[in-house]
Design a protein around this nucleic acid. Structure first.
Length: 440
RNA sequence: CGGGCAGUAGCGCAGCCUGGUAGCGCAUCAGUCUGGGGGACUGGGGGUCGUGGGUUCGAAUCCCGCCUGCCCGACCA
């Protein structure tokens, strides 16, 4: 994309309402614009990141055979009255009345709706397990929205739902989801640690929150640093084999990790002092087994092999996609701006033309740009070098390809890695190759 | 929902106390110079002063209501 003809405005000064670093950078880089309390418009730079995260989430869901659906944001209140949650959910649910005086609501989550859909199509245990997900906007009327998209009222979320024939089968699904989540966060480029979460009235140990380390996080966290040292990507996991999944699950959850709410001093003391890590974190996902809560309350059943009625065991699995955008920035930035992980950066690299009046510079920039116009941002503005560098650092592109008259005369451009600050002079025709072979 | 604060140009702010021509910086536009880390100079454009009412010859300024937003707390992907 050519910067001169793009809608990619940056700000030198920050709107006063932005308190935390991710919010400030998101506003300064023109990723989002607040439209109302806790409600944001996503502008091109922000949307690109949002979509990249969603794509990774999608691929990892498909990898465990979850299938994508898209449910409406508006739901009928009747559905929620069936489960009993219409009254239970409280003022956090945005309720709407249409012209016929019918009660609707803007979905804060979709257990009822997915259960209803499931009910209409699956009538036999042979239809199980079923694993569906969507990536859709949700609305929760938070008492006090804050921190930009970190805690907005409207947010973009991946929500998955599973239906299994019994508890044992549901556990296998849960294990698969643990795997998918760890892979998802790994690919996105953040370190998310699964921590035992409150399971509510169901009990058991089948709910985990995934927490990203960030000093500005809302939850205090305690964890065994041995988790971070796990090279689990090299551990073979066969998703068709429940024992393989179970041993993977056991390994990934065997280290102490808890938020301050669930912190247990006795267990914590068993962790060797040198491995004790305390800090703050941001919750970016949660997985949850809740048994037959909705299938029973909504009377949704299938016929078992013995012709008897079975209430499928359900689980739900969320990833806060829009929150992740902010969480990534919280955990990856410096005083000059964002440092995007490669996988989710809005652009792979920015081509900084320092010789806008130099034909040779322009030619080099153009030919480079044309090799991948979708992923290169070409800063072809008639700005001074300082402004271009400042914007490049602010926007956090993983690579900066600096094209100036001095280097071009020798057929060389300078390349800078945002993450490390590493700089190198590279022959023009080797740039693409250089980036591919120097990811760290 | 309790406590605090704020709405003046796209953004950051001053002016309000003590009523009388609506200002500054950044951004933006035109031009000249400049050209490897947000450069300089000159000249422009841009305002229902959140909103409704009241007081007054006269209201951004004083008074009352309302709306919106932000911060702290209790609650949450």
């Amino acid at each position: 994309m050519r910067l001169s003809s793009s809608f990619l405005p940056t700000l030198k000064e920050v709107p006063a309402e932005a308190q935390i670093v991710s919010h400030r950078f998101m506003l300064r880089t023109g990723m989002v614009r607040q439209m109302s309390s806790g409600i944001y418009a996503w502008l091109p730079a922000g949307l690109r990141v949002l979509n990249k995260i969603a794509d990774i989430v999608r691929e990892e869901q498909e990898a465990i055979n979850a299938q994508e659906v898209l449910m409406p944001t508006l739901q009928s209140a009747d559905l929620w009255k069936r489960s009993g949650r219409y009254d239970a959910y409280g003022p956090e649910m945005l309720r709407i009345v249409d012209r016929h005086k019918r009660d609707l609501l803007y979905g804060p989550t979709n257990e009822e709706m997915i259960t209803d859909i499931f009910d209409q199509f699956v009538t036999s245990y042979k239809g199980l397990p079923a694993l569906l997900y969507q990536i859709q906007w949700k609305f929760r009327d938070e008492i006090r929205p804050r921190f930009g998209v970190m805690r907005g009222r409207e947010f973009y979320m991946k929500d998955g739902y599973s239906f299994d024939v019994d508890y044992d089968s549901a556990v296998v699904t849960y294990h698969k989801m643990m795997l998918a989540y760890l892979r998802t966060f790994q690919r996105i480029g953040v370190k998310a640690i699964p921590m035992l979460a409150d399971t509510g009235p169901i009990g058991g140990d089948l709910s985990h929150e995934f927490i990203i380390l960030a000093p500005t996080g809302e939850s205090g966290i305690f964890f065994d640093s041995a988790f971070a040292d796990q090279n689990w990507l090299e551990m073979p996991v066969d998703i068709a084999d429940k024992d393989s999944l179970a041993s993977f699950f056991k390994r990934m959850t065997s280290f102490y990790a808890a938020t301050d709410e669930k912190h247990d001093e006795v267990e914590w003391d068993k962790v060797p002092v040198e491995r004790k890590c305390e800090g703050r974190g941001i919750e970016v996902g949660q997985i949850f087994y809740f048994g037959t809560k909705y299938t029973e309350s909504m009377d949704v059943s299938v016929t078992g092999s013995d012709s008897k009625k079975i209430y499928p065991h359900m689980g739900s699995y969320g990833i806060g996609v829009s929150r992740l955008v902010a969480a990534i920035i919280e955990s990856s930035h410096d005083e000059n701006g964002i440092i995007w992980p490669d996988a989710v950066a809005p652009f792979k690299a920015v081509i900084i033309n320092l010789g806008m009046k130099d034909q040779a510079c322009k030619d080099v920039c153009e030919s480079l740009y044309k090799t991948d116009p979708e992923n290169f941002l070409y800063d072809d503005r008639d700005e001074r070098a300082g402004a271009k560098f400042a914007d490049a650092d602010l926007m956090g592109h993983p690579w900066q390809i600096i094209v100036g008259p001095r280097g071009v005369a020798q057929n060389i451009v300078e390349i800078k890695r945002r993450k490390t600050g590493m700089r190198a002079e590279v022959p023009v025709d080797q740039i693409i190759e250089y980036m591919a072979s120097h990811q760290d």
